[in-house]
């Protein structure tokens, strides 16, 4: 057994070298079947999923097959190919200034970074001289309220919280009433993480929306789904169900500073076309960036991002 594992481990590290340096290995050579297969595997290893990877490579084959290419050229053109899929969804998040407040409901499965994202968004709005109000709608998880309160202190934003296990919908209603009275620009409502296959918990989210609409029938003006970049193919199901249940208007992809490349976003762009507003690249308040299609695509194929400026 030990022999097997050490053998496998060797094999794995070889494969990884091949994947991370995969494109370097086909430097200045004919783009043949083998080379295309390596490219396809690079995409699969970046979580694009086997079907999307296959389709992208099939397109690529049509225009490029048999040509003599350098490493750089091939990365560039593959990134360009992927960027065209991502361009339409790369839409920055914008507040509607006619809304006082613009109501943002933040949803997602457990542990994707909803609360952290709200903290980061609050900072951004503060820097734009807007007045955000945060709502600690995760009344379930231990210390979730305190976590948001600390973000409130850091970003000098008021936090509206209720008791543990309080009704999140009631809290949201109360928060909206107060935010309207105080002429806040944006109301950021945190919610408890929930797995999309739990019907009762999804119903709870719908209830929050129903109750918000009693106060403002146009609310919520945005429903942001926070997605962890390490998530694999299950993200498709996540987005599908959340979209169906609460009409998600945009995505925020978190934890892109890690080794995961978030290739599932390409599959999501193809399947749903939901805007990707921002990406999270760290735990600090400033670590939220706009989603840039070209940079993201370059990251997927292992090409460094374009130099800033």
């Amino acid at each position: 057994m030990a022999g097997f594992f050490s053998r496998l481990k060797q094999g794995l590290s070889r494969s990884t070298q091949k994947l991370t340096g995969g494109l370097a290995a086909i430097t200045k050579r004919r783009l043949d079947d083998e080379a295309l297969e390596e490219l396809e595997e690079t995409l699969i290893a970046a979580d694009l999923g086997p079907a999307v990877a296959k389709r992208i490579i099939a397109n690529f084959r049509r225009t490029r097959f048999g040509t003599e290419v350098t490493d750089r050229e091939i990365r560039e053109s593959l990134a360009t190919e992927i960027a065209t899929i991502l361009e339409p969804v790369a839409q920055p998040f914008r507040l509607d200034p006619t809304r006082k407040p613009h109501v943002v409901l933040v949803v997602g499965v457990n542990g994707t970074g909803k609360t952290t994202t709200i903290g980061k968004l609050a900072l951004q709005f503060r820097e734009e001289n807007k007045k955000p109000v945060l709502v600690a709608g995760d009344t379930f998880r231990a210390a979730a309220v305190e976590q948001l309160q600390i973000w409130g202190e850091r970003t000098k934003s008021p936090v509206i919280a209720g008791a543990t296990n309080a009704d999140a919908a009631g809290l949201a209603f109360e928060a909206l009433t107060r935010a309207q009275r105080d002429q806040a620009d944006v109301l950021l409502i945190d919610t408890a993480g929930r797995l999309h296959n739990k019907a009762a918990l999804m119903e709870e989210l719908r209830k929050i929306i129903r109750v918000l609409r009693k106060q403002d029938e146009t609310a919520p003006h945005s429903v942001l789904l926070v997605l962890d970049a390490t998530t694999g193919q299950n993200a498709i199901q996540q987005v599908r169900v959340f979209k169906e249940m609460v009409d998600v208007t945009g995505l925020v992809v978190t934890k892109l500073d890690g080794s995961a490349r978030g290739g599932i976003v390409v599959a999501l762009a193809e399947e749903f076309g939901i805007p990707v507003h921002a990406v999270g690249v760290g735990e600090q308040a400033g670590d939220l960036r706009a989603f840039e299609a070209v940079d993201f695509a370059r990251g997927l194929v292992g090409e460094p991002e374009t130099a800033p400026g």
Partner: peptide, 28 residues
């Protein structure tokens, strides 16, 4: 997380090399 994608190998290898993992807990 049971929802983890391809990055599972990178994470597992890095943590294992650094710490010598003795067991895994698969959540969700």
């Amino acid at each position: 997380d049971a929802m983890t994608g391809q990055d599972a190998v990178n994470t597992a290898r890095a943590f294992h090399e650094a710490l010598g993992i003795t067991g895994v807990v698969l959540t969700r």
